[in-house]
């Protein structure tokens, strides 16, 4: 063990009791060694202090969301179609800028954005929460940045999420693999909304969700802010 190795192992509590005792005896007799120990102790404290505040930061909802994907149906990820499992990690894909989505799915990569297309785009643009359809639209609300956002659930695609309107398209802010619960009544939006989507709403919403009248009015204006 080199002198530095020994000193650092001492500070890290990695010496055996006998080694420790011997080192402490040297330390008492050698002010230069003691000064070295002090410098290294200060470095340890400084490095720890630099990163400690990260523990107190709020965890971004997108991270909690991925870990929540499997919700109460254990092993969901493995039992779903491959593209639905991909939805679970869509943010990874978006950030990596990879176009992994199969053509013809409900969402497609455009640059770094995941954009609703086909039936999902139609439902988000035209459907009211009270309207029936293969895709259900849940809550509509104004985000803090002024955009209109809507939650959706597509049982056929095993997908639930939150999309916001901007530049004439719906961009998915969150999308998670999701399966309608056994009871046929998955219409009750709130109870069927996955926690990840609820967390995204909480993080984005300005004020309250739109009521039926405000929802209709916003739709009739083409979701323009």
């Amino acid at each position: 063990m080199s002198a530095e190795q020994r000193l650092i192992a001492y500070l890290d509590g990695e010496l055996s009791p006998a080694e420790r005792e011997a080192f402490e005896a040297e330390l008492a007799a050698d002010p230069a060694l003691a000064a070295q120990v002090e410098l290294h102790a200060a470095l340890s404290a400084r490095v720890a202090r630099t990163y400690a505040p990260v523990l107190d930061e709020p965890v971004p909802p997108r991270l909690t969301a991925i870990a929540s994907v499997a919700n109460d149906r254990g092993g969901l990820m493995s039992s779903l179609p491959r593209w639905a499992a991909m939805a679970a990690c869509l943010v990874v894909g978006v950030l990596a800028g990879r176009a992994f989505w199969p053509q013809g799915g409900p969402l497609a990569m455009h640059g770094r954005a995941l954009v609703a297309q086909g039936g999902l785009d139609q439902a988000l643009t035209h459907q009211l929460a009270s309207d029936p359809g293969a895709i259900r639209v849940g809550l509509s609300f104004r985000a803090r940045d002024g955009r209109y956002c809507r939650t959706f659930q597509s049982p056929d695609d095993h997908l639930a999420g939150l999309a916001c309107r901007g530049d004439g398209r719906w961009v998915a802010e969150t999308a998670v693999a999701w399966t309608a619960q056994a009871q046929p009544d998955y219409r009750t939006a709130a109870s069927a909304t996955p926690p990840a989507v609820l967390a995204a709403i909480d993080a984005m919403i300005a004020g309250e969700a739109l009521d039926a009248g405000a929802e209709r009015a916003a739709r009739d204006r083409g979701w323009k802010p």
């Binding site: 990163y51 107190d56 965890v59 991270l63 909690t64 109460d72």
Partner: peptide, 21 residues
């Protein structure tokens, strides 16, 4: 969320700290 997911959510602050380093 089952057990593993819940434990992972609990670890997120430390994972973020390690990642930041």
């Amino acid at each position: 969320m089952n057990g593993l997911e819940r434990e992972i959510v609990g670890l997120l602050p430390r994972l973020r700290r390690f990642a930041r380093a």
